[in-house]
């Protein structure tokens, strides 16, 4: 049964190109917490976010969001659920034909009946929080990758969602923006009692704000615990990932024949 958290994945299997991304994956994400989903590249962290948001359907198993089976609900119900959810995409996914202001205003115009002044003030407040009020009239093509992602964050939280999914929020950010983002994610979560799911490679940044870390590998959950507990874990996979060691139980190299066998000799 799906009783553990606001998001539950039960016996989820997902395949791509004949390769199993997940095999009988089970995990739960608790309400009101920041949960970091971590793991080496190619372990399906972004795929997991897409399964949670209903953009992908598992080949086996069930995904529950707000106690609703994502495979069984109708499109209309899914759209309603998505209004309670914010997603920060890896690329930012800003609408390229709209200005920064209009991007942040987009969900508010679509789903809320605000007066022009209220909408303006709300958008400006969101942009101020991510430090980009000064670029409100810019087009997305005029922003750097890091700035685009901060605007996308302002847009993702504009509606006041109950759950926010962050896909690599720290990638490509300078140290100042990184620290501000960390504080922003933490304060949003604490003040608004949100549930945050954070996919990240950045161990230090994610561990600093997460209440719970789920470490993925080999299509399953390798370990999950409070960040402090994982830091002192003796599990070889956890140690290897946290300390960034190339040699260990998590292979650095994608399976391939021995290099000597592939190199060409002198002709």
């Amino acid at each position: 049964m799906h009783t553990d958290g606001i998001i539950n994945l039960q016996n989820v299997s997902f395949y791509r190109g004949g390769r199993a991304i997940f095999e009988d994956l089970n995990c739960a994400i608790a309400a009101g917490k920041i949960t970091a989903i971590m793991g080496p590249s190619g372990t399906g962290k972004t795929t997991l976010l897409r399964l949670i948001s209903g953009q992908l359907q598992p080949h086996k198993g069930q995904v529950f969001l707000f106690d609703q089976d994502m495979a069984k609900i109708k499109q209309k119900q899914l759209n309603q659920l998505r209004k309670r959810m914010g997603v920060l995409f890896q690329s930012g996914a800003l609408f390229t034909d709209l200005s920064v202001f209009e991007n942040v205003a987009f969900p508010l115009r679509e789903h809320m009946n605000l007066s022009a002044d209220d909408l303006y003030n709300r958008v400006l407040t969101q942009l101020e929080a991510v430090g980009l009020r000064g670029v409100k009239d810019f087009m997305p093509s005029q922003l750097s990758g890091g700035m685009a992602r901060r605007v996308a964050l302002a847009r993702a939280v504009a509606m006041g969602p109950e759950v926010i999914l962050y896909d690599e929020p720290f990638a490509g950010q300078d140290p100042i923006a990184m620290a501000v983002l960390q504080r922003l994610i933490k304060s949003l979560n604490d003040q608004l009692q949100l549930t945050s799911v954070l996919v990240s490679h950045d161990v230090a940044e994610a561990f600093a704000i997460a209440d719970h870390v789920i470490l993925l590998g080999e299509g399953r959950v390798l370990a999950q615990d409070h960040p402090d507990a994982l830091k002192t874990s003796t599990d070889p996979a956890v140690k290897q990932f946290i300390h960034g060691e190339a040699d260990g139980v998590i292979p650095f190299h994608y399976p391939a024949p021995a290099l000597q066998d592939e190199l060409r000799g002198p002709s």
Binding site: Q55, N79, Q90, A93, F95, T96, F106
Partner: peptide, 17 residues
């Protein structure tokens, strides 16, 4: 390009088809 830059997915996530 809208698909490649996740703009279509982003619309879906705002509950817009």
């Amino acid at each position: 390009l809208m698909k490649a830059t996740e703009q279509l997915a982003s619309l879906e996530m705002f509950g817009i088809d």
